[in-house]
Amino acid sequence: MLLKRKPILKLKELFIERLLFLFSFLSVFTTLGIIIILLFESFEFFKEVSILKFLTDTQWTPLFINKHFGILPLLCGTFLTTLIAICVALPVGLVSAVYLSEYASLKLRAIVKPIMEILAAIPTVVYGYFALLFVTPLLKKIIPSLSGFNALSSGIVMGIMIIPLISSLSEDAMRSVPMSLREGAYAVGSNRLQVSFRVVFPGALSGIISSIVLAISRAIGETMIVAIAAGQQPKLTLNPFVPIETITAYIVQVSLGDTPYGTLEYRTIFACGMTLFVITFILNTFSFKLKRHFLEAYE
């Protein structure tokens, strides 16, 4: 009986293993799919627009009669909102992380961490609403010249959105610094602040930088906040008070419009997507390498 069943059982085991392997290999196909589709459509785009022009022209007007295809204004918009977001998220995120890891009681941590998680889970379209209809009117009272759509309020709200990312990943990094290092510093008479910033912080530095780089990458790829609150005017400016447009917001703008598929105008979104993918890929890889380096250091 047992002998009879065994070959079938073995076959079933083998089949399941192969099937599960295919499932995990699907992720490789996903990456390949992204690269192939972006490359193919961008290739068609760059047949008509030279890469040099794409990277150096200072105007982006593919939907107008006088067409210019310079990515710089969109890159500038993305850079500006990301910069504002990091200026908000970096101090708040890092101080919260140090506090949670070195100062807070277990009880406080147990309350604050889930709330941070909820802050991270709020859909970005809600943050967009918040930026346009709460933060912008509020800022207008302080800065009367502020436009209804601007980089400032979307950048600030984006910063709030990435605070949990920086604080929780940096905190994880700081907590994995061995206790013996802290005890050594306390033994020679340091206080908590000195231990935090002279021992734990430098010890966790590569892990902390890894979390910041990841947050930057998230801010660059963020779409709905800027699509709602930053405007639709690609401009080569670092003025945070005027409407701008980011790479992601442009892709949304074209997707909502009635540009026919297969035209040059339509292919711009794939060229934009390619640019976005390359930038975030480099940042993510860098962050990943730093994190691995950090984890290996304390093993």
Binding site: I269, L276, N284
Partner: peptide, 16 residues
């Protein structure tokens, strides 16, 4: 590869 995919902006998935 999976770790990288987790960091790809969602709008890129839209293009895919």
């Amino acid at each position: 590869n999976i770790a990288n995919l987790a960091g790809v902006p969602s709008i890129i998935y839209g293009l895919l």
